[in-house]
Design a protein around this nucleic acid. Structure first.
Lengths: 189, 189
DNA sequence: TATATCGTTTAGTTTATACTAAACGTTCTA
DNA sequence: TAGAACGTTTAGTATAAACTAAACGATATA
């Protein structure tokens, strides 16, 4: 991956640094559960000062066209890149989103949120099943299971609210995060 | 997985609810990047009112001994379960941690934290390489790359601090989270 | 209308990972 | 000291995912 060259100049003296950076993007993507090629594609876009076309991405990332097509669209959905349409040009161009706090919100909204809902629902469903087909008169075992399940349900509900709150913020920034951290340090809780 | 039965009574009327719950644990585990069998093992431990032995886990989860052995140790490392040693008994017993906020801290510390560090280091390294083998006199291209990389570096540093803050809290609880969320709602930022 | 250039889709391969089954060393028991 | 029960390790298999290469439909151009 990325044994190719320069995005701007031929024999860019920064080549090595860029390659290392993009390699890092691959590793980060992988850890967060995304394909590493997706990280490479983002890395290339992120290190470009102008919109990049799909075929260009293929060359610069070393990823095949099909994969780039798939991944760049996924990146667009997550808000990591933005499609730029140039009038009178049939090609798609992409630029990188550089506001990472905005990306966090997008990813939570797009990817985590549905899964939280699903997880929460499963636990709630289990509780409902307990109530229905359990021993019916609150036997010890049923009570215990319900207590455990409710405990988890409460946690997920709170987590869900937390995510919803973050997603709702349209100005999540370094300063905001900094202030929250300051509150913790001040032992105000 | 888990086509077996009861952890307490034979023909437990709550069987169906438990199975659904455990199935949900599998899905949740999978989403967070853990093997689904690990979720099943945790589910079984979580729904037991007494310490569970390894062989018992094998029966109740439907996962083979080797896998249970591996997964239950991983769960222990993450703080999701605790090994209970019974004197005069060679077997290992496990109980579930029920304080999920405590678990969040553990997981961040154990699993996320090192990866954040690694990600941050890669970006910093790339910047250093830029400074060293770049065009040397702050050409436009080098300046642009450095700006982008620094932007990401700052983000990771802040994220790192945020995680460190959460990990440092030894009383992260529902009430704490609730208060933070309240602050956001109050438009105090 | 023929040819070239887009981006997408698909079929097949490769690769990574989870999982099983069995062997293993260790510790207790008879 | 033989055998049984424990947890771990390992070799092999199954499964799932990413990736490649090629075909494809659509759109522009000549």
């Amino acid at each position: 991956m990325n044994d190719q060259n320069e995005i701007n100049d031929v024999n860019d003296p920064n080549e090595e640094a860029k390659a290392h950076f993009i390699e890092g993007m691959c590793r980060i993507a992988q850890f967060w559960g995304f394909p590493k090629a997706m990280g490479a594609v983002y890395g290339v876009v992120y290190l470009s000062d102008r919109p990049v076309g799909l075929n260009e991405l293929v060359e610069l990332s070393g990823v095949t066209k099909g994969a780039v097509s798939t991944h760049v669209r996924a990146l667009d959905r997550l808000g990591l890149v933005h499609k730029k349409v140039v009038v009178g040009d049939r090609r798609d161009f992409y630029t990188a989103e550089t506001d990472f706090w905005k990306i966090v919100r997008n990813v939570l909204k797009e990817r985590e949120k549905p899964e939280f809902d699903s997880a929460l629902r499963t636990v709630s469903e289990s509780r409902a099943m307990l109530a229905k087909q359990g021993d019916g008169h609150g036997g010890d075992a049923t009570n215990f299971y319900d207590e455990r399940m409710k405990n988890m349900e409460d946690f997920f509900k709170m987590l869900d609210k937390l995510v919803a709150t973050v997603v709702a913020l349209d100005d999540l920034q370094q300063s905001t995060v900094g202030k929250v951290m300051g509150l913790f340090k001040g032992d105000k809780f």
